[in-house]
Write a protein that binds this DNA or RNA. Structure first.
Lengths: 99, 99
DNA sequence: CCAACTCATAGCATCGACGCTATGGGCTGG
DNA sequence: CCAGCCCATAGCGTCGATGCTATGAGTTGG
């Protein structure tokens, strides 16, 4: 990644800063989710525009999300999940112990 | 629950409205997460105030969250998870197939 | 009966996520 | 070479989630 984005860079820095533990985790989560959605979308052979329509949002929103531009809201995640015909799973799980 | 809250009621109505599918799902998720946190907290024998301190927020925020007053942000969920020494798990999973 | 603690809300300010529209660059088929 | 589609951002306005502070009700111990 060269340096196309802006927030992409900012977020990177943020994630590098010490003490930003939780913020870091959230950003990472956002990034991974974005990635996941992208793969699912491509898997279906859809364009961002198509997914956007299906999820009731705009192409720009999808792009921003996939790129990890913001920490998504549960509402949005839910919408995307539906559009992709998936189930959104959010839960607290033990750190190391059994499940 | 009589009718102590305000948003509690509003949210109820919202959830009842047709076509509010995703909003409904999000609200439900919020409610369940709130419940989960409450149980975890009580399990540790902590007061909302204690958890709030541990998670870097105020008692009111914890109360609002546990009551399902708002759809929490991933950032907040992450903070709570840490405070409770748990791991926040967010993922897209198939609707019916295996987990 | 009072003090102290716990939890539920209210009210207010701020910040960030989302929605929309408009571009710009990259690719591809005519 | 132009038209058309795809994706990445930029800007801007709005709304909702959080944070804080201040109460009020319910409990409990002294």
């Amino acid at each position: 990644m060269t340096e196309r984005a802006d927030w992409a860079e900012l977020r990177q820095r943020r994630m590098a800063e010490p003490g930003a533990d939780e913020a870091y985790a959230a950003a990472r989560l956002a990034f991974e989710l974005g990635h996941a959605v992208r793969e699912l979308r491509e898997g279906l052979g859809w364009s961002q525009t198509q997914l956007a329509r299906a999820a009731g949002m705009t192409q720009s929103a999808v792009a921003r999300f996939e790129a990890g531009g913001t920490v998504p809201t549960l509402v949005v995640l839910e919408r995307l999940a539906r559009a992709l015909d998936m189930r959104l799973d959010v839960r607290f799980s033990p750190l190391a112990d059994a499940a």
